[in-house]
């Protein structure tokens, strides 16, 4: 079954499945051990390297399982992990599995413009005021009205020495917001890139501060970004193009990486995101097969009761009008052919001498005849008239 159309072929909202958007993506780490090589880490030796690629390879690479930062000795001890997702996704969760005791403070950021600007999604620390200058998150989520980046407890330490940071986009969103109807929630969950900033390493208790001395490092095995490829309800899957860029497989007359605009000929009404109730498919302009391009006119759309605003451009086959639905001057409708026929409009063919003009009646094809002249094209004298020698008055009354 086609998830984007019902059994009758009518469009319906469709979304790609939930995936780990970070899987196979190239992670950039601001610090990775092994350059220069140490006893336990050598970037040039695959058996002893701890590259950031391990975070998104799902254990596919041989050798060590964990990425590791350099040994950090001086404040600030920030290390940043950046994952470009390749295109816009609608986030569901972000998780980081740490190989050693988890950091005491982490900031989670997102970009919606491929890394040009960043906005926080959440902060994680037992000392929110100290680390981020923010109060701890209220027990029942943000007071609203919109989602916001809150400061949550520090990543959880797991038995055996590892740790886990788990963030759900719902954690920053007030209850009751619906993705279909809330543009602010749509904006909140949308990201093209994710950044995890490890700002304070694990220490014994809360005693660490900027004057502390020692050697610290971060280590993590997996970074997951759970989400759906963002297609605005107009595609059920995303696929890589020949250059490897991920694109929505757009339906409903839409196009673009996120199906966020109508295809050129599908502009009879404005683009809209699909909802569970209404697919809001882009509609093709009605040009009776005589035009390849059209443009949207908001004034006409309003006047039509928000039903149709498309205006056909460059009507061909001698047609004219907003929908190429009548014949242009000098042509008339052939009643024997449907309006969509290439030859639906016939030339008037008014007689050069018998007709008083070149434009015929667009419905009947009747040319305007001079006095005493008859026929559809004014090519003969009416009964009771005979041809004269004057081209100005070609027919005169029969004596």
């Amino acid at each position: 079954p086609d998830p984007c159309h019902d059994e009758g072929g009518a469009p319906r909202s469709c979304v790609p499945g939930l995936v780990n958007a970070a899987l196979g993506r190239e992670v950039r780490a601001s610090s990775t051990c092994g350059r220069p090589a140490s006893r336990t880490c050598d970037a040039s030796d695959p058996r002893r390297a701890h590259p950031a690629a391990l975070l998104t390879s799902a254990g596919a690479a041989p050798g060590p399982l964990c990425w590791r930062s350099e040994a950090l000795t001086q404040s600030p001890l920030n290390v940043t992990l950046t994952v470009p997702l390749g295109k816009a996704f609608e986030l569901v969760f972000v998780s980081v599995r740490f190989c050693s005791a988890p950091p005491a403070a982490v900031a989670l950021l997102k970009s919606q413009d491929h890394g040009r600007s960043w906005a926080p999604l959440g902060f994680f620390s037992a000392r929110c005021g100290h680390d981020f200058g923010r109060p701890p998150a209220p027990a029942h989520g943000p007071p609203g009205p919109g989602p916001e980046a809150l400061c949550f407890p520090a990543p959880q330490a797991l038995p055996g020495g590892g740790g886990l940071l788990a963030f759900s986009v719902q954690d920053g969103s007030p209850p009751g917001l619906d993705l279909d109807s809330s543009p602010v929630l749509q904006d909140w969950v949308t990201a093209t890139d994710i950044q995890v900033v490890l700002t304070r390493p694990a220490t014994t208790g809360d005693t660490w501060d900027s004057t502390a001395t020692g050697t610290y490092s971060y280590s993590a095995a997996e970074l997951q970004v759970g989400g759906r490829c963002k297609c605005n309800g107009h595609a059920a899957r995303c696929r890589p193009d020949p250059q490897g860029h991920l694109l929505c497989d757009c339906q409903h007359g839409t196009e673009g990486p996120d199906c966020s605009r109508c295809k050129p000929f599908y502009c009879d009404r404005p683009w809209q995101r699909a909802t569970a109730r209404e697919a809001h498919a882009c509609l093709a302009c009605s040009c009776n097969g005589h035009a390849r391009r059209c443009r949207f006119n908001m004034e006409l759309f309003r006047l039509s009761g928000r039903r149709s605003g498309g205006v056909c451009l460059n009507c061909r086959h001698n047609t004219a009008g907003r929908h190429c639905h009548y014949c242009r001057e000098g042509f008339y409708r052939d009643p024997g052919r449907p309006l969509s026929d290439r030859r639906a409009c016939r030339a008037c063919d008014c007689h050069p001498v018998g007709a008083a003009g070149k434009t015929c009646n667009q419905t009947t094809g009747q040319c305007p005849c001079k006095d005493g002249v008859a026929g559809l094209t004014c090519d003969r004298c009416a009964p009771g008239f005979q041809q004269s020698r004057s081209p100005v008055a070609p027919c005169v009354k029969t004596p």
């Binding site: 050069p352 001498v353 018998g354 004298c381 009964p383 004057s390 070609p394």
Partner: peptide
């Protein structure tokens, strides 16, 4: 009654050369 079509050869174009060209 079907009337014959206008016969262009019967017209005297002497004073209407421009009309002849247009035709």
């Amino acid at each position: 009654e079907v009337m014959p079509t206008l016969d262009m050869a019967l017209f005297d174009w002497t004073d209407y050369e421009d009309l002849k060209l247009a035709a």
